[in-house]
Write a protein that binds this DNA or RNA. Structure first.
Lengths: 196, 196
DNA sequence: TAATAAAACTAACGGTTGTTAGGACTTGAA
DNA sequence: TTCAAGTCCTAACAACCGTTAGTTTTATTA
């Protein structure tokens, strides 16, 4: 009967998680039902439970895989020996890239991580804060070295991260500028400001 | 029995909408139940329907009241005869103020407006796009007059609006800077940039 | 104080939710 | 070819959902 097609070399579980990301992105975690998901996977709802433990496990999978991805990136950037303003630029470029090429996952994580249950909720919350703190430290060091304007670093980090998440709607925009132009515009605005 | 306390001079419906905003903010629209809401209002779920027509009407109320508020503000700013960079600054200050003093509503609208049903969904979507277009026009005129850097205006608008929405978490931040400092920092960053 | 309107209650509806039980079929290895 | 593991199915569960009906209580007005 209708077998789950594990295209390429992906586990069936991975296929389910991928479809779940798309579904959660479109309807939100809470408004998405397992029967919705099953239909997209091409299987009955009950069959999903041969591959996953619960609906929430899907959200966990999505959140923590994304978190790991982000952590790996900032690991690399911290190790680099480059000007701090350049480190900030690289962080921004990474976030922009993610928002362009992995936006379903990024948006689901941002919007729905609060629906994790304990202890994952606290775990994820801590990871999130730790991540922001590491960026804040980079901004602060940039300020100390005179490479960055003397602003409140935590505020700057909030702005940077959320400014980038705004371009999610770029995907649906009619007169799209190219991804490269988009990236350069964002960097120009955030690093040099709107004013002349 | 437990009567809905219409504190101050608010309609009972207004009281319900206010409690709904808080609830939706905390749990999201879809994950909030009418029994949840009823408990917070201090009444049985069925009793709510003496004052409202449906759960979705609450979301409509929240979304369109907020939209009206935003529209009125940009009406006033468009009428002004001031430098365009100053108009942009005023728009930003308004959004910051809303995010600080009315953040539950702002966040609910931003996160959950997609759960509106037709025709309200289309209506709201159009209002949203129109609003952004009006800001874009201001930015573009600012560029034409040389008050604003030559950037892609729609991108700039996306960044501005979402950068501000990031400060929602400022409410939960531990070492809070003052609201005034927060506002000045945001404006500094967005108008002059992070770099020195 | 009696009549009327407003707003609360209890009970229940039809539908949907995430999930489980149990059985049938398919696949790969021995 | 047989056996076991894996994966699908149908059926169903208990809980919860938004909402309605019908009734009783409270508040307003005459």
């Amino acid at each position: 009967m209708a077998k789950i097609k594990s295209s390429k070399n992906a586990t069936k579980k991975e296929t389910i998680v991928e479809k779940a990301s798309k579904l959660f992105f479109e309807k939100g975690f809470s408004a998405s039902s397992m029967r919705d998901l099953a239909e997209r996977v091409g299987v009955e709802a009950a069959s999903l439970y041969n591959h996953i433990r619960s609906k929430e496990e899907l959200l966990q999978e999505i959140c923590f895989k994304a978190a790991q991805h982000y952590t790996e990136n900032i690991d690399a950037i911290e190790r680099e020996d480059s000007p701090f303003i350049q480190k900030i630029e690289k962080i921004l470029r990474f976030h922009i890239d993610q928002m362009i090429n992995n936006y379903e996952v990024v948006q689901v994580v941002d919007r729905d991580w609060k629906h994790l249950s304990e202890p994952h909720l606290t775990n994820y919350h801590n990871e999130r804060r730790a991540y922001r703190k590491r960026i804040t430290a980079i901004v602060e060091e940039g300020i100390r070295r005179g490479e960055v304007k003397d602003i409140d670093a935590p505020t700057a980090v909030l702005i940077m991260l959320h400014a980038v998440s705004g371009i999610e709607s770029w995907h649906r925009s009619v007169q799209k500028i190219s991804a490269k132009d988009l990236e350069e515009n964002i960097l120009l605005i955030l690093l040099k400001g709107l004013g002349k």
